[in-house]
Design a binder for these strands. Structure first.
Lengths: 109, 109
DNA sequence: CATATATTCAACCTTTGGGTTGAATATAGC
DNA sequence: GCTATATTCAACCCAAAGGTTGAATATATG
């Protein structure tokens, strides 16, 4: 099983807790303990979320003694942005959609 | 339970089959039957995927007799692009170079 | 050394996800 | 009206996701 970058990145970011962690990390690296604070869940739950982000490459970890420093790695987000940008042309013109719809319909007539 | 737009959109797009369906729909609307073709899975499986995309707002369905026309609605993708763009500042070459510089310098300390 | 702190690991539970098969439903066409 | 086609619905299976608790492990600090 491949589970490529986009699969893991999209899946990781589908959870609001993890998006909030990412947002937090955009302001600077933090320890796992620091990340727990805003959430109403156990330390272990947050630790798991961090691991999911790490596996998706969204976050990188550096150990300094007993503390783990978690830092944002924005590359997968960049990849997502790249993926999404392929649909930019659809964002402004509704006409494209209509045209495409009519086109496929005409073929079958 | 809220399950807002981004949750559903990210989750829907974390599956490669569904991203492929989205890509296919970018070329024009299609029936569910048409969407099955490239995949090695049952019609029902694809039908389920379409429903997931629909629930996420990535796709809209118009019934014409017994045929359902599935068309791309790019708005959630736009939302994702908007979300991702908040991290653009991390993507710049300047910051990449700065980071690399700091990294190599720290090694010498 | 003894203890408090930062963290993972492991087992478990419940819900969700992706897939299957077998109906059921609705429309199209002869 | 009968049959083929396009689709959903429902039940089921198994794996993964998100959470919990209770260790274990490693490092600071008095």
């Amino acid at each position: 099983m491949t589970t490529p970058v986009l699969d893991l990145a999209f899946a990781a970011l589908s959870d609001p807790t993890r998006r909030e962690i990412v947002q937090r990390l955009a302001k600077g690296a933090a320890r796992v303990t620091d990340l727990v604070q805003p959430f109403d869940m156990s330390f272990n739950a947050v630790s798991k979320h961090v691991k999911v982000l790490e596996r998706a490459g969204l976050v990188r970890r550096t150990r300094a003694g007993r503390e783990h420093h978690i830092a944002l790695d924005p590359e997968p987000i960049r990849r997502i942005a790249g993926w999404a940008s392929r649909y930019e042309r659809f964002w402004s013109d509704r006409l494209d959609k209509l045209e495409a719809f009519l086109k496929t319909n005409r073929k079958r007539d």
